[in-house]
Nucleic acid binder design. Structure first.
Lengths: 230, 230
DNA sequence: TCACGTTCTCTTGCATGCAACAGAACGTAC
DNA sequence: GTACGTTCTGTTGCATGCAAGAGAACGTGA
């Protein structure tokens, strides 16, 4: 059952460095929070020795994804509710910053991508295609982040999202039809500001949007699986 | 000569984890950018084997401080000018965010620290005590960052500053009497906004301040040692 | 003098072995 | 039944050995 999940996916974990593969394993949700990640087992699973596994786990520790208890073991780390709130605050700051930076740039290809994205989102929303909508939301945010033309920002955002990616909380927005409509309008508002080169307004609109969706997710999770988050 | 430098300092590198010690070594400037960091030499220097050194270097690579060329060696990494600009943009965003968050919080002890800090800064500026002034600036910024009460923000900011801490560029502000006065006034403005609980104004004031000082540093370095940064 | 093939050295990458420790499991005394 | 001391198993931490590769150094031919 657990294995079937990985089998069903396009196996993104099979590609890339060992670190990426181990990270995908942790983020994949196959190991629930608190589950032990034995170095020897992982070593066997990936067909390498303990040493490179150790290096990867150490890195994941610094990324906040696992916890290494000396002489005891390595465990999948569950972020506290407080941390999630903090991460969303950061997300708001970084995405706002990115939107502002993008607005300052001239006419760049990212704008076309965003325009089509918003149009497609409207369609996906009308068709109630939750999966496609979630995918478009993902693209929208990442396009703006990358559109900032600031690689360090992208790096930090990536780190942030990895920590936030737990529990596939990301796609939950798609389940609320009411929120979808609001969310689409907010995307539209952000894009308008960017195209108007109003970097101040773009940042404000983006932050407003991120804040609204994070509030949605936080209140959601609080009621849905309060025990695991609080 | 090189050894004497470490001997002369209060040896902050002697404390903390191995990672911290190696990081201090790199940031200490004893190894110029591009200098090789041999695993075996470091292992001897720290009295451990290659393995823990390797782990530390790998981590420093992810922090952007060193570059590991496979099968060739590990080298102190020199950030490009573009990266420095990107980092300053991020710095502006994070410090602005922190100032805003701090302003939202009620009357917290950080406010007293900041108040005294600004007062002391005025004195230090009047007395032309550059070292003390630089120290106070450092405290001012970190107090606001920590005052955000957002540990994830602190973590990201710490990472950021490590990358920016190269070449002790940080203290250069102290060399410009004109900039000092402006800088102090900007600190005062930020503090006023925070104490007025104007989180919007606090963020704006902070960003304005960070932007101004980063412009100062960037134009400085461009003229001073253009070759090494561009 | 220059171009080119070869050796040679130094580096990292990874596998493995052993020691140290945490914590569970167990037995024992009361 | 309970508290406590002991063993025992599993885990990580680190040292070491060996192999593979990159690049310098060198020699050789023209």
């Amino acid at each position: 059952m657990q294995e079937n999940v990985t089998e069903a996916l396009p196996r993104p974990a099979e590609q890339g460095t060992l670190l990426d593969r181990v990270r995908s394993l942790v983020l994949g949700g196959e190991y629930p929070p608190g589950a032990p990640l034995s170095e020897v087992l992982l070593a066997e699973e990936f067909g390498v020795s303990r040493t490179p596994i150790r290096e990867a786990l150490k890195q994941l520790q610094h990324e906040g994804l696992v916890e290494i208890r000396p002489k005891v073991g390595t465990f999948v780390r569950e972020p506290t509710r407080r941390e999630i709130v903090e991460l969303f605050q950061l997300k708001e700051g970084l995405e706002g910053l990115a939107a502002g930076l993008l607005a300052r740039r001239g006419p760049v290809p990212e704008l076309d991508v965003l325009e089509r994205n918003v149009e497609d989102s409207v369609v996906a929303a009308a068709e109630q295609d939750a999966e496609r909508y979630a995918s478009l939301v993902h693209e929208f945010h990442w396009t703006i982040i990358r559109g900032s033309d600031n690689r360090k920002l992208v790096e930090h955002y990536d780190r942030l999202m990895n920590q936030l990616a737990y529990h596939r909380m990301v796609v939950r927005t798609a389940e609320h039809p009411g929120r979808i409509r609001t969310s689409t309008e907010e995307h539209r508002a952000v894009l308008d500001m960017i195209m108007a080169k109003d970097h101040f307004g773009a940042e404000a609109a983006m932050r407003n949007h991120v804040y609204a969706s994070s509030r949605e997710l936080l209140t959601d999770s609080a009621t849905a699986h309060e025990s695991s988050l609080l």
